[in-house]
Design a protein around this nucleic acid. Structure first.
Lengths: 207, 207
DNA sequence: AATCAATTTAAACAAACGTTTAATTTAAAC
DNA sequence: GTTTAAATTAAACGTTTGTTTAAATTGATT
């Protein structure tokens, strides 16, 4: 991918914010231009069109979604500890990029624009491989049970997070989380722990 | 709520389809009118505006989301069986209404329209109460562990489902589900079983 | 057959949309 | 200082948007 200049990066940043908050169709190029303090024509000038701006945004951000796990496999950790660390990495990563996930998930669901999700799927497969490696190690050491459908674990990890995030007003009220920081803190402490516990429980559960 | 006539119900049905497939902002009143074989003006005539049509749709459909659980508590089942049955009810219910969940979740996330989600939240609280009752029974009988955050279990149940549904192209490929029916069948058999197993594992997991 | 309200229609409305144009400004190269 | 290409602008473009209008049609009630 070509590098973007400061002005283009600013446009991408504003577009990411507005697309995630109001949807692609709910955001006009004039909204973006206003928030980014640029002329409307600059969007076509730099990106060609509104739709190509979305495409550039997705391609530019997808690489941020791959987990960085070099340390995880180098360190001398038990499979349980590795699961804990992997899930924490997972959640921190998607929490940092939750705007892009909001945008991408809506685009996947609606299929209005034909965007190439190949690299997105490759990232998911890459992350799934890492999980599989840890689970196999745990099974070989006799710590985890045998019949585990590894591909269904990421949906539980990410789904729990996204559903919690998606229903922020509801769970914010339930858990008395008044500010955005309260909510974010709760995710990075309690919710991560809940997901770690859930997956570890599943990995040792005998039917 | 006032009852709707056949024509109004047809409009609601088409709106539900198109709003879920292309989003509220991605659907024009002309799209709806065309698919419903009516004149554009009929939408304003019957519902006042496009936005009020969305509101009417949400209010009209929310009652479908409440679980029907009379039988569940009458029957003589173990807490484990009750959990299994409740989760199956949960998933079958949201799977039947997945279009409305798609619409509502997008509306909650974007906050562009100010819709009253009180009855939606009440349904969620009602469903949470039922889960709580079962878990308490299991704890009293010494079958489930003590320290369970019940409010975090529905996000795992529903989140797993929604994330699987949302990434249909990816998981369809992973599990080799070629048709819509294949996908639906997989949900109602394997995915439900995965979620049941996950929650039961969590309920008996000792830290 | 006449009346009347409810329904349905085609047409028009202003506003907002994404995009393009042509002119102007900017800033670096010569 | 002149040249040149890139950046930026205001204005206009043709569509599409949601909504309204006013006339036409329908179908039951008198």
């Amino acid at each position: 991918m070509t590098e973007f200049n400061d002005k283009q990066n600013e446009i991408l940043l504003v577009a990411e914010k507005l697309f995630s908050e109001h949807g692609f169709d709910g955001t006009s190029v004039r909204d973006i231009a206003k928030e980014a303090n640029i002329n409307i024509a600059m969007i076509s000038y730099y990106f060609g069109s509104k739709e190509k701006l979305l495409e550039a945004l997705i391609i530019n951000r997808i690489s941020d979604l791959r987990l960085e796990m070099e340390n995880l496999f180098k360190e001398n950790l038990t499979p349980f500890e590795k699961i804990d660390r992997l899930i924490e990495l997972y959640i921190r990563r998607i929490n940092k990029n939750c705007r892009m996930y909001q945008i991408i998930h809506f685009e996947i669901a609606t299929k209005k624009r034909d965007i190439n999700y190949q690299s997105f799927n490759e990232v998911k497969k890459y992350n799934l491989q890492a999980l599989m490696k840890i689970i196999e190690e745990g099974q070989e050491k006799g710590l985890f049970v045998k019949n585990i459908d590894v591909a269904l674990i990421p949906p539980t990890i990410m789904g729990t997070y996204f559903h919690f995030q998606m229903n922020k007003p509801f769970y914010g009220e339930i858990f008395n989380l008044k500010t955005e920081e309260d909510f974010d803190t709760y995710i990075l402490t309690h919710l991560i722990k809940h997901i770690q516990k859930t997956i570890k429980a599943l990995l040792v559960y005998e039917n």
